[in-house]
Simulated assay, not measured.
Amino acid sequence: MFTFIHIYRAMWNARVIVFILFFVAIVSDAKRFETRCKLVRELLKIGMPNDMFLGQWVCLIEKVSKRDTSLLTVKASGKKLYGLYQIPKEWCREKKRGGLCNISCEALLDDDIRDDTVCALKIAEEKGFKYWPQWTTRCKNDNFITNEIYKCPDLNRLTPERSLSSSLYSRSLQLRRKRSLRSPFPKVTRSKSRHIH
């Protein structure tokens, strides 16, 4: 009787462990955008500007994290990269808000990509896309993904970008630096010239 109870408990514990692992696998899969179009839809939903750089952001995300919001990469040097944009630890702080983006590193690993995107935009404004080596080697001067995303239902009525010129990129960053910091995704407004009579 004693042996049977122990065997039964061991089998029950094994079933619970298998169920937990299965549940974790499902949750992990749910954090990955299965398709490029789902990623585009989410980026537009949270307010990512639909400008000439949208395709570059999608390309960057695919190359650094394969659209996986829960990806945590630990380099041989011990350097950690977090989430969809693989943001380095200096931009966040473990277990509490901090770093250059004033965000916890764990917040970069959840399903809510708004705060991740705000931080990534901040990095791009300060450092440029070249901050991510994968963008330089795999996205720069390559418009394949940009052209592909315009086949998505949310973008198929629009015109894709044709090139990523450094001058336009610099001008965009200058405009973004002048924007109000109150909203994470402010729109650029052109002020009308005033004539003094």
Rank of each mutant, 00 (worst) to 15 (best):
R190F: 01
S172E: 08
L44D: 03
S180W: 01
D29C: 13
P49M: 10
G78H: 06
S77E: 07
K75C: 01
S191V: 10
E148V: 12
K63G: 10
T146P: 14
V40L: 12
R177T: 00
S183H: 12
C139R: 05
T136W: 04
P133G: 09
N102E: 11
L60S: 03
R177A: 07
G98T: 04
F53Y: 05
G98M: 02
T3P: 00
Y8R: 12
F53E: 02
Q174A: 10
V58M: 04
A25W: 01
L44W: 04
L72R: 13
Q56Y: 00
K140M: 08
I196N: 15
F185S: 08
L54D: 03
R41N: 12
C59Q: 04
I196L: 15
F144C: 15
T159Y: 00
C139L: 05
I61D: 04
Y82C: 07
E62C: 03
K38E: 11
L173H: 08
V18N: 13
T159Q: 12
I87H: 08
K45Y: 07
S163E: 14
K140I: 03
H197G: 14
G78T: 06
L108K: 07
E161C: 02
E126Y: 14
M48E: 04
F129H: 09
E90M: 09
R171D: 12
K130I: 12
V27P: 02
L121G: 12
